[in-house]
């Protein structure tokens, strides 16, 4: 199934677009999105552990709700990756 991951903050460095499209197996969960994002980071920044740590520490959201790694996804869902925050 197709999942769109909207990028924010430092995660914007992972793509030239404002999102990444993932292809996941049926019944996938947010944990599977995180695992694929980790693989993308390892490919794109193989020598930079900061990005790896950033994805590991990131939360995910659906619309305006934070969702946990056990959240079950549906085809064509859009989720956001929320890296560590620092506004104000």
């Amino acid at each position: 199934m197709k999942i769109k991951v909207e990028l924010f903050g430092v995660c914007r460095e992972l793509s030239d677009k404002d999102h990444i499209d993932l292809e996941l197996n049926e019944n996938s969960k947010i944990k599977d999105v995180r695992d694929q994002m980790i693989e993308i980071v390892k490919t794109k920044f193989p020598e930079n552990n900061n990005y790896l740590e950033m994805v590991e520490k990131s939360a995910f959201s659906s619309k305006d709700e934070i969702i946990e790694d056990t959240y079950k996804l549906k085809n064509n869902d859009a989720v956001s990756i929320i890296p560590p925050i620092g506004g104000g």
Binding site: V10, I82, G87, G88
Partner: peptide
């Protein structure tokens, strides 16, 4: 308000 924004509002610099 400002202290809570720093802790939990998804804004990045």
């Amino acid at each position: 308000i400002i202290e809570e924004i720093k802790k939990r509002t998804p804004i990045w610099k």
